[in-house]
Design a protein around this nucleic acid. Structure first.
Lengths: 70, 70
DNA sequence: TAAATATATACCCGAACGGGTATAATATGA
DNA sequence: TCATATTATACCCGTTCGGGTATATATTTA
């Protein structure tokens, strides 16, 4: 569903972190991490970026339903 | 500064729309459009997506400071 | 199976987003 | 120049995010 939420969940698991550990390390609330990974749409962008930054990413405009390569 | 804000401003001007017109067509508040284009970080993601959608884009994870091609 | 770990759901509540609006500043054009 | 259009700044205020916390559910492991 939500691209960003899936990305965070994937990267987090790939890093072998629990939601709690990731919340701690990123300085975000556990509640927020959960809502983000579950695809909540009305999250705040700065918090999203704070999470993405942990994996060297930021939120940016990407073509709808389109693929993009790094 | 903010990638998304710059993107919206660019696309909007390219489309020959004023902030007011764009706010109307996108169903967003004029206040929000301005804050977004001025790089406000603490905006809500769903509103950002509502704006990006007008130009066929959505917010997604992109490599930090990295280029990406469509 | 049971115990332990991880994730999900529900609540309280302070802080702040964002719509609307009014006014100021800036840009554009005749 | 002056008039108009566009953008920026400031305020009020209802709605809601998100931190923290407690509890329930699900998953993993012995």
């Amino acid at each position: 569903m939500n691209v960003i939420g899936m990305f965070i969940r994937d990267q987090r698991k790939r890093a072998g972190l629990t939601q709690e550990e990731f919340a701690l390390r990123s300085g975000l609330g556990l509640r927020f991490i959960r809502e983000l990974e579950q695809g909540k749409q009305t999250v705040r962008l700065d918090k999203v970026n704070q999470a993405l930054k942990m994996f060297g990413h930021v939120a940016g405009p990407v073509p709808m339903d389109g693929e993009y390569r790094t």
